[in-house]
Design a protein around this nucleic acid. Structure first.
Lengths: 147, 147
DNA sequence: TCGATTTCTGGATTAAGTCTAAACTCGAAA
DNA sequence: TTTCGAGTTTAGACTTAATCCAGAAATCGA
């Protein structure tokens, strides 16, 4: 567990605690866009006495304090994304897996100029098939659980 | 109830029935992006013996037959959109209400050219505030229920 | 150490969605 | 007509994600 996780929580105005650090250690570093239940399952591996309520409380706290983004994109589940900077999302038709797509790889026309709307944030959501078994774009990911 | 709803269902390979027509009459013509429960509530107004299971069956059937699109964009709910052509979506921060944004009002760079992905469909999802109480873009809408 | 505050837990609760088995509808065949 | 069967509908049970709650445990400041 990285030592500056403590700093990161404190900076965000969150009291560090063993449970919160365990949750943070997983969810703030993964690429897997886990759901709350996946976070619970993962973290309980090292931390078996962790309760479901604590996971939900902690995730909601992280979202509120700006450490996580909550996404609702895939069927039947709310997932969490620790990458706060702008990026797009690709959802694999077969696996349902969500991947990040770098902001710069797509250019979107004048969104802020849309009349009648004050756009705070936006993203392109793509669905389709991932080509080639091997990783093409990007970062190495933690293993992903299907549900 | 428009008479060609019957035709529309038949064309899609769906046996018309009183219940299905009642659901179609609401969900295929509304602008409100209703959730399944909102459809149930609305249609039960004219059709009190309609059961929850029938609504879910019918909506899933419509999605399967291509009359509806199922969207997962807003917190805690799956909603249905009868507009099948490509368009973008705007989600109001305050009300959570989803609005359609015409495809042509935004230009998105070379999505299909993204290497490593075969993109089947895509859309821009925007979040923010709607300006001015009055309608600015578009079609007149049925009244929307907050939940 | 003591008392106050915060955090954590298991279990109950709610709500969306699915499943199931029985009942109903209706046209076609006898 | 009656019977048959395929398809449709229903109420209610069930499943799962998510939240709520009240007591227990841990933490903190003095």
């Amino acid at each position: 567990m990285s030592p500056d996780l403590v700093t990161q929580l404190k900076t965000a105005g969150i009291q560090p605690s063993a449970q919160r650090l365990a949750v943070a250690d997983y969810v703030l570093t993964t690429d897997a866009h886990p759901s709350a239940d996946e976070v619970l399952a993962q973290v309980q591996g090292n931390f078996p006495m962790l309760s479901r309520a604590t996971v939900y409380n902690t995730l909601n706290l992280f979202v509120e304090k700006g450490l996580l983004r909550q996404l609702v994109l895939a069927e039947g589940r709310t997932v969490f994304d620790p990458r706060l900077g702008p990026h797009h999302h690709f959802i694999d038709d077969e696996t349902g897996r969500i991947e990040d797509v770098p902001w710069d790889s797509l250019r979107v026309g004048d969104v802020r100029g849309l009349k009648g709307y004050e756009v705070r944030e936006y993203m392109v959501v793509m669905r389709g098939r991932k080509l080639g078994g091997s990783r093409v774009q990007g970062r190495s990911a933690n293993p992903v659980k299907k549900r």
